[in-house]
Measured scan of single mutants.
Amino acid sequence: MEQATVKWFNAEKGFGFIERENGDDVFVHFSAIQGDGFKSLDEGQAVTFDVEEGQRGPQAANVQKA
Rank of each mutant, 00 (worst) to 15 (best):
L41F: 05
V47Y: 01
A60E: 00
L41A: 02
E53R: 08
S40Q: 10
Q59K: 09
V28S: 00
T5G: 03
V63E: 01
G35C: 11
T5A: 06
G54N: 06
R56D: 07
W8A: 00
D24T: 14
K39Q: 09
F27A: 00
A32H: 06
A66I: 15
A4N: 03
E2G: 10
G16W: 01
F49M: 08
S40Y: 14
Q59N: 04
D50N: 14
V47T: 02
E2Y: 15
G16T: 03
S40R: 10
F17A: 01
E12F: 11
D24P: 15
A66R: 12
Q3Y: 14
W8V: 00
F38A: 07
Q59M: 09
T48Y: 14
K65I: 13
F30V: 09
V26R: 00
A4T: 04
A11G: 08
Q55G: 10
G37F: 06
A66C: 13
Q59P: 03
K65H: 09
V63L: 05
K39C: 10
V47W: 00
T5I: 13
V28D: 05
Q3R: 15
V28R: 00
N22V: 10
A61V: 14
E12H: 12
D36V: 11
D25Q: 14
D25C: 14
Q3E: 10
A4R: 03
E43T: 14
G23N: 07
F30P: 05
V51F: 09
V51W: 08
E21S: 13
Q64T: 11
Q34R: 09
F30T: 06
K13L: 14
F49G: 02
F49Q: 02
Q3V: 14
K7R: 10
E53S: 10
L41V: 04
I33V: 07
G16A: 05
G35Y: 07
S40N: 07
H29L: 04
A46W: 15
M1I: 12
E12A: 13
G57K: 04
G23V: 03
F38S: 06
V28Q: 02
K7V: 05
E43P: 15
A32N: 07
D24W: 08
S31L: 08
D36P: 12
E2D: 07
E12M: 12
F15K: 00
A4Y: 05
R56Q: 09
V63Y: 00
I33G: 02
Q45M: 12
T48G: 04
Q59L: 06
F15T: 02
K39S: 06
N22D: 10
P58R: 10
E52S: 10
I18L: 15
E43R: 15
H29C: 08
V63K: 01
V26S: 01
G16C: 07
I18N: 01
W8C: 11
N62A: 05
P58H: 07
T48N: 08
G37H: 07
G14W: 02
Q64R: 14
G16I: 03
G54I: 03
D36L: 11
I33Y: 01
F15A: 01
G35M: 12
Q3I: 14
S31R: 07
R20L: 09
G35P: 01
D36K: 12
G23W: 04
I18W: 01
A61T: 13
N22K: 11
E12V: 12
E53M: 15
A46L: 15
A61K: 13
M1H: 12
Q59Y: 12
D24Q: 13
E21C: 14
A46C: 15
K65A: 11
V26C: 06
A66Q: 12
T48D: 05
G23R: 07
R56H: 12
N62T: 05
T48H: 09
A32P: 05
A61M: 11
E12W: 11
D24S: 14
W8Q: 02
K13T: 08
K65Q: 09
A46Y: 13
G35R: 00
E19V: 15
E21N: 11
N22E: 09
Q34P: 04
Q64G: 07
Q64A: 11
P58W: 09
Q64S: 11
E19L: 14
A46V: 15
A66D: 09
R20V: 10
V63I: 06
N10K: 03
Q3W: 14
S31D: 06
A46M: 13
A60S: 04
F27M: 01
F9S: 03
D24Y: 09
E2C: 14
E19H: 14
Q59F: 10
E2L: 14
G37P: 05
V51N: 03
A11N: 11
Q64Y: 09
G57Q: 03
D25F: 13
F9E: 05
Q34W: 10
K7Y: 00
G57C: 05
E43N: 13
I33Q: 00
D50W: 15
I18C: 03
